[in-house]
Amino acid sequence: MKVLVVDDETDVKILFEQKFRKEIKSGELEFAFAFSGEEALRFMKVNEHEAVLILSDINMPGMSGLELLKHIKEKYEKPPPVVMMITAYGDDENYNEAMKLGADDFLTKPVDFINLKEKLKSKSV
């Protein structure tokens, strides 16, 4: 299963690669990274339907995670990828907005990687 991680913090890439090194090694999970909403959209356009799960930060300069979510849920109908939102601001407003736009899950920073691993594994089954 290919997972697209969208975050403006570039160190996220190293972190994910280390956290999921066993899964990556076994081929269980495959990761791609985009450092802005715009970049994520470009990636999806080029690699259509490759990523089935998108992990996106909400607070990013330029296109925010919510805008990206809205874009994805509106444009990719069959089948729309699973989108999980991650944010530092785990308030109701962000949560409700994300759910309204069709987010499949909502995670708050700091990310609980054990929990995330389980969620990803359950999705990939």
């Binding site: 913090e9 972190l15 956290k19 990310v111």
Partner: peptide, 16 residues
């Protein structure tokens, strides 16, 4: 926010 982010990295990188 700006402190939260690096702190997360510190925590995560030390854990990993």
């Amino acid at each position: 926010h700006e402190i939260q982010n690096p702190l997360n990295f510190v925590n995560n990188f030390s854990e990993v």
